[in-house]
Simulated assay, not measured.
Amino acid sequence: MTLRVAIVGSGPTGLYTFQKLIETAEPLSIFIFEKGDRAGIGMPYTSETADRRMLANIASIEIPPLNQSYHDWLTSQPKAILRSYGVDPDTFDVRTFTPRMLLGEYFRAQFVSLVGKAEARGHFVSIHEGTEIADVVPEGRHVRLETTVGPADENFDRVILATGHMFPIDDDPTDHYYPSPWSGLIDADIPAAEVGAMGTSLSAIDAAMAVAC
């Protein structure tokens, strides 16, 4: 019988797992469950958790290629699309930091290509977008997945959890304090003032960009 493998989460961890799985010569039945509406993007790179002005903290030179490198994919995009994300199509290179949402579109495109490659190699792929997994239940030699609306239609031989991370729940922002750029700062109207940022990580860069914008 064909081995049934479920991947829970289709962000970068799920994508690289999927890429490795389809290299096997043995046909597999691969089921991909994604809570979001579009599989392949990854939670940190969606419009729900990011803004077009927020930069990713990883450049093409640091990203293992999927079907193609991030730089090659960017090169293949219309210049107008790159400009709409604030990327200069004539000057970017493999070390350029780009908006998170643009990186998410790259992952989405690679996911679609990987699905086609998987099917061409004889694997069966079933994609379940908008499906949140609530529990993973071992049952003898198989595993059952429970969604938020009931059990999934299949039992699985293997389940890979690739659900990533969740941003911490911030305290409510005030008119002068924002726990993170995601708590309202990116959309706030900041008057001329002295601004302090605790920390110098990517979040601090996002905060500086938010204030400047």
Rank of each mutant, 00 (worst) to 15 (best):
R100K: 12
T75E: 11
E132H: 09
H128E: 06
D51P: 03
R121W: 08
I41F: 02
R95V: 04
E26G: 03
F124C: 10
A134W: 14
A25V: 15
R108A: 07
V94N: 07
E132C: 10
Q110R: 10
P65N: 13
I81S: 13
L28N: 02
P44Q: 04
I127K: 12
G42S: 07
E129D: 13
D93I: 09
V112H: 12
G104R: 01
F107N: 02
A39G: 08
T96M: 05
P138A: 14
A109I: 15
H142D: 11
S76I: 08
P138T: 15
H123I: 15
I127R: 07
A80C: 11
I81K: 10
Q110V: 05
L82T: 10
L55C: 05
S29Q: 08
F97V: 01
I22F: 02
I81E: 14
G140M: 06
L102P: 01
Y85N: 04
Q68V: 07
P99T: 08
S84R: 14
T24V: 07
E129S: 12
S69P: 14
L82W: 13
A39P: 03
P78I: 15
R38G: 00
L55P: 00
K20L: 10
I30T: 02
E105Y: 05
I61W: 07
D90C: 12
V87K: 09
Q77C: 09
R83S: 09
L66T: 04
E139N: 10
V87R: 08
I32L: 14
S47C: 10
P64G: 10
